[in-house]
Design a protein around this nucleic acid. Sequence first.
RNA 1: GGCCCCAUCGUCUAACGGUUAGGACGCUAGGUUCUCAUCCUAGUAAUGCGAGUUCGAUUCUCGCUGGGGCUACCA
Length: 470
Amino acid sequence: MKPFRVRFAPSPTGVPHIGNTRTALFDWLLARQTGGQFIVRVEDTDRSRYQPESLEKILEILGFLGLSWDEGPKVGGPYQPYFQSQRLKRYQEVAQKLIDGGAAYYCFCSSDRLGNLRQEQKAAGQIPRYDRHCLSLSKSEIEKKKKAGQYVVRLKMPDNQNFIWTDLVQGRIAINSKDLDDQVLLKSDGFPTYHLAVVVDDHDMEVSHIVRGVEWISSTPKHLFLYQSLGWQIPQIMHLPLILGPDKTKLSKRHGAKSVLDYRDEGYLKEALINFMVYLGWSYQDNSKLLSLEELVEVFDYKKIQKQNAVFDIKKLDWFNGYYIRMKSDKELAKLLKPFAPSGVNESLLIKITPLIKDRMVKLSEFESLAGFFFEAPKVTGDFLAKKIKGDYKNYLEKAAQTLQPIEDWQEKEITSRLMGLIEENNWPTGDFFMALRIAIAGSCYTPPINDSMVVLGKERVLKRIGALL
RNA sequence: GGCCCCAUCGUCUAACGGUUAGGACGCUAGGUUCUCAUCCUAGUAAUGCGAGUUCGAUUCUCGCUGGGGCUACCA
């Protein structure tokens, strides 16, 4: 396959959610597997929604997932700057070229007039669109108005032209220009709109494949017309299916859609996030197989991308995450757990706790509820014990303490054998006895194996916790 | 409303025009177990509807229905 030169073009208006990030993942996969380039280009043309801190977050997401970029912020590249706000001159120059060639025109209409127009059209049951009020202005009128005030540059869409392209994912798509509005290309503040900037930059930066969400399909003819008017070669086009919220509409903040950073902070592993994202709208022959980024570079096939939108299912992400947690070695997992453990935690203690909670964790953030009792004595009342334990819990605990007290070799094997002996001797129900011990020591009915936990806690603390309830 | 797109278990998805329509997640049940979980086993559940083409449609065509996207001086 020819090298794909693709760009991920985030707009720094907030932290992108997982749907937008998936596009970056697909971009990266395509670039890496074809030996091409993955470019990050910052589409910061909307100064009203601009959030300066969001770019750092976007780059942090890519870094966290391991999606390195070849050109873009921080790393530069042969086509810099990679910030659209720094390329204004070029857009203005292209806009002028379009005006000269008759493919664009100045528009001096006020937003008031535009608003009224739209309202009237809607009221009349018409399609709201610009009425080309400024199209027929004479040269001198234009010059006069340009001096007098602000203006925009609009694309002069052909009245009736079929725009047809073969989308690498969606197949053949045809849209007639008569359904399209005269899009503003250059805003009154001198900044370009997406439509102008994306075409200019993709051309200038020699992007070979445009990869983006299907929400862009309807504006693609505008871009096609721009390429045509400028005499530029059209890149390959690939529109990715959307990720939908539970209500089956486009995933958005409204759904509480989170960013990869949010998931990371909740204790989701990058491996889980990557598999989750890649399997939303794409499939592998063995679709029960979980794949590493390296394996994905090998097996990813854009021809297997779905045309259908995919619904976000957190249960699946949870399962992926639990799976990857279990796959980690204790050492690796302990390292990942550190940010979720009490600050200044002793590493050798952490690595002892890790195997006890590994099979029980879906997210790293569950560390506290699962392992908190290793650090702080739980608050347990006799009432609670009496409610949960069928037998005489005081008797259980008292005898347990007496049995545990003399143990020299504080190991699981020894503890278990002594305790089992005690149970047999008294003919106690095993589960009931251990539950009493479990609650006394860990403060919950659901905990890691209690004898192993006692080993980690140490004899002294175990006896102290038991003693507190006698 | 207009334009464009889509349609297989609840969800993500497989299936040269010929399969008992497969897998994964979820869910249910059973086994293992000191709890919970892991693990193992089994089960549950889908081709939206109607025509047409064909010996034979999940698969091809048309219509309907349903769903989604777009319809900004936002991307």
